[in-house]
Design a binder for these strands. Sequence first.
DNA 1: AACCAAATACCACGAACGCGTGATTGATAC
DNA 2: GTATCAATCACGCGTTCGTGGTATTTGGTT
Lengths: 218, 218
Amino acid sequence: MAAAGINKNIEIWIIEDNVSYRRTLLGLIERTKGMSCSQVFSSCEEAINKFEDADAPEIILLDIGLPGMSGIQGIEKFKTLSPQTHILILTVYDDNDNVFEALCAGASGYLLKDSSPEKIIESIKEVLAGGAPMNMKIAHKVLEIFTRFKPKKNDYGLTEREKEILQQMVAGLTKQQIAEKLFLSFHTVNTHLKNIYNKLHVNTRSGAVSKVYKENLL
Amino acid sequence: MAAAGINKNIEIWIIEDNVSYRRTLLGLIERTKGMSCSQVFSSCEEAINKFEDADAPEIILLDIGLPGMSGIQGIEKFKTLSPQTHILILTVYDDNDNVFEALCAGASGYLLKDSSPEKIIESIKEVLAGGAPMNMKIAHKVLEIFTRFKPKKNDYGLTEREKEILQQMVAGLTKQQIAEKLFLSFHTVNTHLKNIYNKLHVNTRSGAVSKVYKENLL
DNA sequence: AACCAAATACCACGAACGCGTGATTGATAC
DNA sequence: GTATCAATCACGCGTTCGTGGTATTTGGTT
């Protein structure tokens, strides 16, 4: 596995539009034994062009927020052009969508830009060793995403009627509208709502709706 | 919760049927400063019983291949009994199914038994810091699982600021609370909220929150 | 320099909400 | 046979929301 590091340098490309950060990365790579950065780009498009007359690198350090084609789109393109190339995301975005999309698209790791230089070097090695380096924060998000795939049946002891009312609330209806739709008195809906709040340990509509989705109730 | 490490030891339970490995773990924990293992079990059932007359621990080190109830089932049970308890899987199984199920069920981390003692201690700390420690191998499998999914994405031209405010609303905060949290005037939040409603074509908090989840905004 | 979108801030009003406290009925359980 | 609990309905109080406005500042385009 580490064979590459013995005879020749690990070939790395950098795609990063921020000039100073790009320079920082380049410096870091170049002064690390066993690694070398032959190409730097500020957009995916440029890198894609280079694939024609240059050998594919072993690693691409890739930003997500890029001018033109986004890093996410880039991943897919690079993976088609050179499936064996590992792509290590290095970005400021840590929202669930970007993380999810990047990993779905085939990224081999996901780091945030506040990672220390040592962490970055270490992660590159980890990728080559078949790992999947991630920030603590990112790893946590990954698990969060996982738990969403598993329908929890944590009822909180909600009654059928309460669930019914919760559904209407999730749909965005007001208490009065719910009452009309379910042929109830406004006061009844009010009471149910209070009980729901108690059971779910929330005290706002948004909190309740949020809990419904997060924990897959109903 | 993070204050726990300052004044008292991190409370850890071990559930592991292999006597010698259990002893190894126990020894490791007990000789680590700031951690203490008050309970060891060889099955989930025993641990579940103890939940009644003992305080829930901060961490459970959990094996998967157990007599009786499997570790996977155990996770769900423990998470119901004590949602704030972190469960760290420590097992020999590294097949996709077990990994996937465990993480779906709510495990906070997944280590293989060949992990070094230092790695285990480090992982416990990482879990408490909100991370999700995984072996290189496991992390790689997690990414593999991810590549099997491929969803959509949507945006209603929401501003970054608007998304930020939407996030707080999803968390169940009131306008006033959001204003305080983001160091804004109440009126500003109000304005943003109006714009958000317009963009999402809703006119209630619940409707907005609902849309966020249904269409995977943020 | 002109322009524009985004972020910020303010006001006022009627509608809706959250919450405490209460009651009545009917079914199920012990 | 009485205890429990879901479901229904009721009132009032103070708070928050949704919506109609207006307006300033700022950063980026043109």
